[in-house]
Amino acid sequence: MVRSYKICITVALTFAYVNAQSTASQYGQCGGIGWAGATLCPSGWSCNVVNAYYSQCLPGGATGTATVTSSSVSTSGSTGTSTSTAPVATSTLLPGNSFIRSVEDPYFHYYLQSITPGNVTAAIMGSYTSAAQFQVTGGQLIQESTPPLYATVEDRANSTVMQLGVSWSDTPATSGTFDFSGDTIEWSIPTIDRPQLNAWLVCPDSDGNNLLFVNLGYYDYETPTGCADETIHFYTGATAVP
C-alpha cells in the first residue's frame, strides 16, 4: 500500500513537471495562482503578468518583473507558499491595432477589455495592465486574441430601453456597425436614431466590473443612477499607460 502511494505521488509530480515545462500557445495562459499548465512561451514571446491569477504569452521580451505568491501542497500534506517571478504586464501594441480607453472621470484612462483577458465575457473598462488590443474592420470591433473576439451589442427590447450592453463573442456581430469618428468609437444601427453615436455609459456591477453600455440617449443627460457618461477613444502608444 505504501509503495502504491509513493508511485501515485511520483506520477502526479512528474505530470505536473512535464505540463509546466510544455510551451503555451501564442496569447495563451502561461501562469498565475492555481495554474498548472504550460509556463513557457514560444520563441520571441514572453510570459506577462496580467493579474495574480492570469499571465499571458505576448510578443516581445519582458520589460520588467513582478512576484506572484501562490499556494502549494507538499507531499507530506502540509500547506506552504511558493513564489515565482514573471514579467510585468506591458503588452506592446501590435501593428495595425489600437488600445481603446475612456477619457472622462471617474474612468479616466480605463481600457476596454474582457473581464477575463481574451475570453467571451461582458465588455468592461479596466486597468491599463490588462488592456486588450483592437481593430475596426468591416464594421466589426475585433479584440486581438486567439481566436479573435467580436464586440456585440444586445438587441433593444423596446423603445423605453436607453442603454444596451456590450459583450464579446467568438462569432462576428450580425447587427450594428462600429466605426471611428476622429479618435472616438461610434456604434450605429439603422433601426435606432441615436442623437450622439459616440455616447457610451460605464456602469459598475455588484462584482466591481465596470460594464460598458451603448448610450441611446443624449450624452450627460438623464444618466442612469450609478453610471457615468463616457466617450471611448483609440490610443496607439507603444504600451497602455495610466
Rank of each mutant, 00 (worst) to 15 (best):
T92V: 14
Q133N: 11
A12M: 14
L94T: 10
S114H: 02
V103T: 12
T81R: 00
R101V: 03
V50C: 00
S72I: 11
I7F: 13
S91V: 10
P95F: 03
S25A: 14
L40D: 09
T67N: 08
L13P: 07
D105F: 11
Q21I: 08
T75N: 06
Q135G: 05
W35K: 01
A36E: 11
T65R: 00
T83R: 00
K6L: 15
T92R: 04
A12Y: 13
W45C: 04
T79L: 13
S78C: 02
G32Q: 11
V50L: 11
S130Q: 12
T121H: 06
T129D: 07
S102P: 08
H109W: 04
S91E: 12
C8P: 01
A16D: 14
S98W: 04
L149Y: 06
S91M: 02
I100L: 03
C30L: 10
A132L: 02
C30R: 02
C57P: 05
S127R: 00
G37F: 11
Q135T: 15
G44D: 11
W45V: 01
T121L: 01
Q26K: 13
V103S: 09
V11F: 13
G61T: 11
C41Y: 05
A16T: 13
A123K: 00
T92P: 04
S22Q: 11
A122I: 01
G28L: 06
G28N: 08
A151D: 12
C30I: 09
C30M: 06
I115V: 15
T152Q: 14
S71F: 03
Q143C: 14
V88R: 01
P117T: 10
Y111C: 03
S78N: 08
L93G: 10
G118Q: 05
A131Q: 05
S76Q: 05
A131G: 08
V68N: 05
S82K: 01
N19H: 08
E144W: 06
Q113Y: 00
A86E: 13
V49N: 07
V18Q: 10
Q140P: 09
N97V: 00
F134Y: 15
R101Y: 05
W35Q: 04
A62W: 00
T146V: 15
A62D: 12
Y110D: 10
G32V: 11
Y54K: 04
G118T: 09
G64F: 02
Q143P: 07
A132R: 00
A38V: 08
S25E: 15
Q56I: 14
Y53P: 00
C47N: 08
P106I: 04
V18L: 15
G28F: 05
G77P: 10
T39M: 05
N51M: 01
K6F: 15
F134I: 07
A89F: 06
S84F: 13
G60F: 02
C47K: 00
P117V: 07
G34W: 09
S25H: 09
Q143G: 10
Q26M: 05
Q143R: 07
A132S: 15
I7E: 15
